[in-house]
Amino acid sequence: MSSTEPSSPTRRRGRAGAASALVALALALTTGGCAATADEPSTAGSAVPGAVPADDLTRRLAAVEAARQCAVTTTTFPDETALTTDLDDRLAADGLSHAQWKEWHDALVHSPDLVAQLVEVSAPGCAGA
């Protein structure tokens, strides 16, 4: 609701609306006009436009990604394509495709639920780490 609606019926409500608008302006200036400030963790909030909800499929993708992230720093790859081959092999072992992973990976940046799910899946850490 906008507090400066021209249809406000009374002068009192109009003053209150003007005051609220000033407060909103001041808050907007101090926070940069963004609902999420730079100080907030990026995983905060869930009502993000375009956000992808977490489900069983995204959990499986998160599990593959978590396992890969654990293995990648202890593995050498003979050539550039071997990095993708390793990912694709892991995905295929769980009946998943690279396209599904890419879509999920691209959605992470605007999907707090996916990030929270990935964090949860990764929480046990890497075996032997």
């Binding site: 990026s42 992230q69 890419k102 691209d106 940046v109 990030v115 990764s122």
Partner: peptide, 11 residues
């Protein structure tokens, strides 16, 4: 890998 964005709280 996969993008140039590191999403907060992920690795």
């Amino acid at each position: 890998y996969g993008s140039a964005t590191l999403v907060g709280a992920t690795t």
